[in-house]
Design a protein around this nucleic acid. Structure first.
Lengths: 352, 352
DNA sequence: CATCCATCTGAAACCGCTTTCTCACAAGCC
DNA sequence: GGCTTGTGAGAAAGCGGTTTCAGATGGATG
């Protein structure tokens, strides 16, 4: 019993199966892949031998011989962010429907690791989906220049030779700013995401553009996690802002929690807006006003684009999905007296 | 420029590098792997050629030649559950420290998919880490019988030939029951997790054993997500329970949210206990009483065990990590008058 | 009945890399 | 100086599959 499989060395090969079935390895291959017609009797013998020996083809050998792995790789910065599992599920579904499996790696928000991991993925996957890449433009150019199928998710770099699918972060933040302006807010704070994040700079770009709405914006360094939001929230008080925008929902929720602890009522004293609409349904108690793009659709489109690139070689044009505003309970007109700052703003509350 | 890399066919091989550097492929291999001493001048030429041609070794060919992939695979039921990223980060760290990369797959809680995915992983990884497997015992036996390095995480199956690392779910639930009993609760409801989950049956086993504490338990079907908890919460009212235990924190938080909506105060009218202590710090507003085991430690131990199994072949004995109770704000002595049930329980509140 | 063609099977080449084996060459020894 | 060692580089043999190629067998045809 113990000797039936002696670890590494004694793996069952296709020749073993052939020997057991009394046919050649070629025939076994043909039977298993349905590449050519084979005598039913032989096929049956092969199948018997396969099950009896517990044969499973070696993926490396197949990959080498076929010139492809049947795998698509996805790199995400942080699996702990609920945003990505949502995307990944869609990607997996598309991959499965094309007979491919998906292999996920996480870069932990570290650009240097990210570079290595992308290289690894390119060496062992037919295509790579790079989500919210933190890489510098130059690094990215090197990687996309390799001629390996690669699709960028949630990052658009103009001159780059790689197709991209992204949510319209700029438009999303504009929606938020419009909403806040309409409510009567004038001073807004922004809890900034990772500095190296394109998604973050898009949001900031929109915030600058929103000066046209009469908004003045203070940008506070923060991060991408609820902990960051929690810790950075205290600094909001000093800005005189009546509304707080954030890099994402996690940050927003962290900030809301901190605000509650500080005795600041949301939204009466401070409106808070998230970003992404992550699925913390039924967990966070605040109905967070936020913007979103269907993550499933995002993942699906990106995966389809990648598969098309892998199989047909043609790269579709960059795709930008529009975001939607979800107004919930965390935003309201600013109150007449702002408790957050001694100087006050005297903004007139509007009844909207 | 466009012709520099013509997609699939024209990939740079080790021989190309050798030709460019004026050496043999063997020498290139030796230089890149540091396998043997090579003349510094040649080595330099090789390195130049590598960078110039943008050579990256083909992972399949390496895997085939070396007989190993340098990869460990992890299968989790659901990436959306914050429990797993916590484990995965630790696994990745261990893998990296051993010069291996990790490849993650998600089964979406579907045992049939899970079986296929494990087979896939075994065909393309040196070792497999199977987290919270939903597979039936028989299926699992087949898989572990393959003689492929495999470690079970959070699942212990007595007669199985695979090492396992698990949190002591039984002990964890006992801690919870002890805590509740001490507070004076007598009637407890349990929102049950996935039926096929070993982790769930361990919790239930503990609940049964807790009859010794004088607790009577009602088990309600539920699931593993906050949505499940939210939806199942309403049924708790009918049980006359003064305390609610759950499969995990997500379920508990969902239930708490629902209870608030129903006007049931937590913990005054109903104590709620979670399981896992997932990192929703600063997001959920309820300080949830729960039990936990360090997920990092869990992942690390499992990964180390797997690496040991892969390299040395020896399988350590099953490891069970003790859980800790974290008493927070969601549990309290039962109130004298329970509004949840007309018959009431008349349990005496104890001041603990 | 001999010839040809269509089918199916096995042998062999190949995928790209590692590793053993072999050999050429230079240094060390008597 | 001839011979043994030691050293480093190239040739070649796999790793385990797939796929081309060639050959055997059988039926259809003239």
């Amino acid at each position: 019993m113990r000797n039936l499989r002696q670890g590494r060395g004694s793996r069952v090969t296709i020749s073993d199966v052939g020997a057991a079935a009394g046919v050649s390895a070629s025939t076994v291959s043909r039977v298993l892949n349905g590449t050519a017609k084979v005598d039913p009797a032989l096929a049956a013998r092969v199948h018997d031998a396969v099950t009896e020996l517990g044969y499973r083809p070696n993926a490396a050998a197949q990959g080498l011989a076929r010139g492809e792995w049947g795998t698509i790789g996805v790199l995400v910065p942080d699996l702990a962010n609920p945003y990505f599992p949502g995307v990944l599920k869609a990607v997996s579904a598309v991959a499965r429907s094309h007979g491919r499996r998906v292999m996920v790696m996480e870069s932990d928000d570290d650009p240097s690791i990210e570079h290595d991991l992308v290289e690894d993925l390119m060496r062992s996957c037919d295509g790579v989906l790079l989500a919210s890449s933190r890489l510098e433009r130059a690094d990215l150019a090197v990687l996309t220049g390799r001629g390996h199928p690669l699709v960028l998710l949630n990052r658009i770099v103009p001159g780059l030779a790689a197709p991209a699918v992204s949510a319209d972060f700029f438009g999303g933040m504009m929606l938020i700013c419009g909403h806040l302006a309409q409510l009567g807010h004038r001073r807004v704070a922004y809890l900034s995401g990772p500095e190296v994040s394109w998604a973050n700079s898009e949001r900031i770009r929109a915030l600058e553009a929103a000066k046209a709405f009469g908004l003045s914006v203070t940008i506070l360094p923060c991060g991408a996690t609820s902990r960051c939001g929690y810790e950075a929230a205290a600094a909001v008080a000093g800005t005189g802002a009546t509304a707080l925008t954030t890099y994402n929902d996690l940050v927003a929720l962290g900030a809301v929690t901190r605000m509650r602890e500080l005795g600041v009522r949301v939204p009466e004293e401070l409106s808070v807006v998230g970003f992404d609409d992550i699925a913390l349904d039924h967990v966070a108690h605040t109905g967070l006003t936020t913007v979103s793009v269907p993550r499933g659709q995002l993942g699906r489109q990106a995966a389809e684009m990648l598969v098309a690139l892998m199989t047909e070689g043609h790269d579709g044009e960059p795709l930008t999905l529009p975001m939607e505003l979800h107004v919930r309970d965390s935003t309201a007109p600013p109150s007449a007296v702002t408790v957050l700052t001694s100087e006050g703003d005297g903004g007139k509350p509007s009844s909207g």
